[in-house]
Computed example of a mutant assay.
Amino acid sequence: MKPYFPKSHGKPRVDDRRVLSGIIFINRNGLRWSDAPREYGSPKTLYNRWKRWSDKGVFARIMEGLAAEHSEHKAIMIDATYLKAHRTASSLREKGGRGRLIGRTKGGMNTKLHAVTDASGRPIRFFMTAGQVSDYTGARALLSSLPAADWMIADRGYDADWFRDALKDKGIRPCIPGRKSRDKPVRYDKRRYKRRNRIEIMFGRLKDWRRVATRYDRCPKVFLSAIALAAAVIFWL
C-alpha cells in the first residue's frame, strides 16, 4: 500500500503504518475518533490524516490499484445494496453538487452502493447514489469503467435493452435473466448465473465493518473512502 500514499515533505510525519492501523480499527468497530486506543497515537492525528487522505482519494486509489493487479476479469458482476444512514449523517443537507447522496425509502434514510466485482466476487469499482435512485443510474455510471471481460452477470433488475446493447458493444456477453413483463423470454446461462451469490456475499462482508453498515459520515467522499478501505483490507490484502 505504501506507493499509494502521499510523500512526506518537510518535517517527518507520524508513522503511516501506526496511523493506518488506528484508522482501520476505528472504521471496523464504528468508534468515535476520541475513543481510539492510546497505542495508535493522538485521536486528532488519526482524524486529520483520515480526512486529508480521503479528500485526496488515497483509499480509492489503493483499492483500485490492488484490484487492477490481482482481479480475475473472465466474468464480472454488478449489483447494489442499501446502507443505512445515521441521523448525524443526514442532518444539515448539503447544497450544490450531488449533495450528501442520502435518500428516503421504505427502510428510512439510506445510501445505495453500486458495485462491480470480478469472477471471485472481489470489488473492483464502486459508485454511490441516494437510496431511492434506480439501479440503472449506477449501471450507466459504471459502464465506461468496466474492465475487459467475457461475461457480465446481474439479476433481472438490470434487464434493459440499452444495457445489454452497451455490454455487447464492449465485447461483454450479458448473463441477465429477463423481467417477467417481457413478451419473449430471454435466454441466459443458468449455470453461470448461480455464481451471482458471490457479490451478495461481498456486500455482507463489507457490512461487517460498522462504519460501512451504518453511515455516520456526512461527506460522501469520506464515506466512500471507508468502503474502499474495508474492501482493500478484506479482499485485496
Rank of each mutant, 00 (worst) to 15 (best):
F5A: 14
H9V: 00
H9T: 00
G10K: 07
R13A: 06
D16E: 04
L20D: 00
S21L: 12
G22S: 11
G22A: 12
I24R: 15
I26P: 03
N27W: 11
G41E: 14
S42M: 02
P43S: 02
K44H: 12
Y47E: 04
R49I: 00
W50P: 05
W50E: 01
S54F: 05
G57R: 03
G57S: 07
G57A: 05
G57V: 03
A60I: 11
L66Y: 10
A67P: 01
H70R: 15
K74G: 01
D79H: 06
A80H: 04
Y82M: 10
K95V: 15
K95D: 15
G96D: 10
R100P: 05
L101G: 07
R104T: 10
T105S: 14
G107K: 10
G108A: 11
T111A: 12
K112W: 14
H114P: 03
T117K: 09
A119T: 01
R122C: 15
I124G: 05
T129I: 12
T129Y: 13
Q132P: 09
V133N: 02
D135M: 05
Y136W: 03
Y136F: 02
T137R: 00
S145H: 04
A154K: 05
G157W: 13
K168H: 12
R173A: 10
I176K: 06
G178D: 09
R179I: 03
R179K: 11
R198W: 03
I199M: 01
E200K: 07
F203V: 12
R205Y: 01
R205C: 02
L206Y: 11
T214F: 03
R218C: 06
R218N: 08
S225T: 11
A228F: 04
W236C: 08
